[in-house]
Write a protein that binds this DNA or RNA. Structure first.
Lengths: 337, 337
DNA sequence: CTGTTAGCGCCTTCAC
DNA sequence: GTGAAGGCGCTAACAG
């Protein structure tokens, strides 16, 4: 294998003594005579020839890349989604282009514009916030897009989302079944898509069960540090017998704050998180968590996009993933596990 | 803004009544008369024109993409590195293509071959294992590559690595200073690059301090589950007064296993992790951890690659990042913090 | 300052 | 089954 620094169809063709068309055919597995195939393979191997992706893309109009836009590459729930999406699209022969959009909604708009440059064949995106303008940009995108989470009004796109209300119901039912009656809630910012949905779920779940006692504190964001502060604020107000948290990071924060205040988990206070990420297991006791189906959402989103790439005119599909509850030590005695 | 479904230089040029070259110039900010600039901008806006990335890449020979290959997208230390690399390369105008190579070393080889298709301008890679063949493939790559971690023998590449020996020394010194004398070690697989380096560091650190007592257990991999098992095995053998762990996940596992056995942390057993990832803070007590500079390594690697893309002939640079120790509750009493 | 033109490397009809 | 030729959309000489 010689220097692959260059080496194009032309060079391989010369070396093999055939036309560039024949080389192209052999490289793409199209029918060719034994003899030509042989010579081309040999020449290609000697030259270390590898077809150029860019040129191919320009010609065929596909990049074999899928873009993924998430707000925070570091958030465990996005990490899990990324891993799953990476798995699915890689298996289908696509590369994954990662766009960390950051918090600023303007980044999302920029991303959509730049997507029209055609560096990817499609986009999977999970917006934290959905401003008006996002909707119009989505509508004018020339590439297929799958949204994980709520759609902006008027956008008819393939979509996958969680059922936060059902998820909250699972958590509250579980806690009520343990005889808990003062169920507090640590949420993230309420002006985000998940924040709004989870608060909604909390209120509905309590209302449905006739529970009047409600206490809610909003953390500044969905991080552990913000959770520490929120939990401290919450416990200042009094001690509930259960705390539901809008994600697992907030739940671990609540657990640690409560423990440090001398409260026994789960005896004095039961704690339930959401998302059921890897870190729910790391806590001591491990944290009961509502799996809102992040992994399944990711997988479904990837499949929806792949399907649309194959059939651009297929009917729009909107999938709701049903939540499940994984019970661990933070909300129930060992012997009940 | 009209339908952007197509719209090329030609269309914009027609609409603006100028040549395609003029459009290209305006779009790239090259000098052009006021009048032409104006007309082109207007036409482009009306047509929703966005330059095609693929065609541009083919022409200029650059994709403005950087590939990142890591073994496990889910591992917290890689997540941190990803985030940092994403930040740096994005700011420099590059997109990040994520390649999760998996455990199989063959994946890495495949990746290097496919990289020669030219879908990215360079590669950052952090191999878990470094088989012979990887070296030869690295040498025959036509694109710049920066390796995070050990280099295969004979590869002269830009490189960033941690100083595991110094890191272990930090951990051991810290523990010895607390009067700990029976310092055990929970490692990951010893046939991986980090596993070998950390064992090496452990042995050297103990030897340098004349500590004879050594106990080591290797977890099956660097995950929490494997850590639980390894820690249990370790504690079966007897109770050390300190445990150093090859990463934070293993450390949390050790902490939880020890706690459940009724041991007090840090009084009975001190625990020190490595990598100083976000999760070190989540544990209760929080875990003292040796920061092997994952974030700095990532940032440095990204910068080295950007530099090489600018100056292909710059001298090879190999950087060693010095570790630091972040002391938390798992290895020292509150009052000493 | 602006327009014309020649490819970048590949795939794909179209004749042979 | 194989070769010749056109063009994907764009940039960079080179003329004018």
């Amino acid at each position: 294998m010689a220097d692959p620094r260059k080496s194009t169809l032309v060079l391989v063709a010369e070396r093999a003594g055939v036309s560039i068309a024949s080389v192209s055919r052999v490289m793409n597995g199209l029918p060719a005579s034994e003899r030509v195939t042989e010579r081309v393979r040999a020449a290609a191997a000697e030259l270390g020839y590898v077809p150029d992706a860019t040129a191919r893309s320009l010609k065929v109009g596909r990049t074999e890349q899928i873009a993924l836009a998430v707000a925070d590459v570091g958030n465990p729930v996005y990490v899990g989604m990324m891993r799953e999406i990476s798995r699915v699209v890689t298996k289908a022969g696509y590369r994954l282009v990662l766009s960390s959009t950051g918090i600023d909604p303007k980044d999302q708009i920029d991303l959509l514009v730049s997507l029209n440059r055609g560096y990817a064949d499609g986009l999977i995106m999970s917006p934290l916030r959905v401003p008006e303008e996002l909707g119009t940009q989505l509508r004018s995108s020339r590439l297929p897009i799958v949204i994980i989470g709520s759609l902006p009004p008027g956008a008819e796109l393939d979509n996958v989302r969680a059922d936060s209300v059902a998820g909250m119901a699972l958590a509250v039912d579980h806690l009520a079944a343990q005889g808990r009656t003062r169920i507090a809630f640590v949420n993230g910012p309420v002006d985000t898509v998940p924040g709004a949905a989870r608060r909604d779920g909390y209120l509905k779940a309590l209302a449905a069960r006739g529970i009047e006692d409600r206490t809610q504190v909003d953390a500044r964001d969905f991080t552990y540090q913000a959770g520490l502060k929120a939990a401290a604020t919450l416990l200042e107000k009094g001690t509930p017998d259960a705390i539901v948290c809008a994600n697992d990071l907030l739940a671990i924060a609540a657990l640690n704050v409560a423990t440090r205040r001398g409260l026994k988990i789960p005896d004095d206070v039961a704690i339930v998180g959401m998302d059921d990420t890897d870190i729910a297991d790391l806590a001591n006791p491990a944290i009961t968590s509502v799996d809102l189906g992040a992994t399944r959402r990711a997988r479904t989103a990837a499949r929806l996009l792949l399907r649309r790439l194959e059939k651009p005119d297929a009917p729009v599909r909107q999938v709701v993933i049903e939540p499940t509850l994984t019970v661990r030590g933070s909300s129930t005695k060992e012997e009940n596990l």
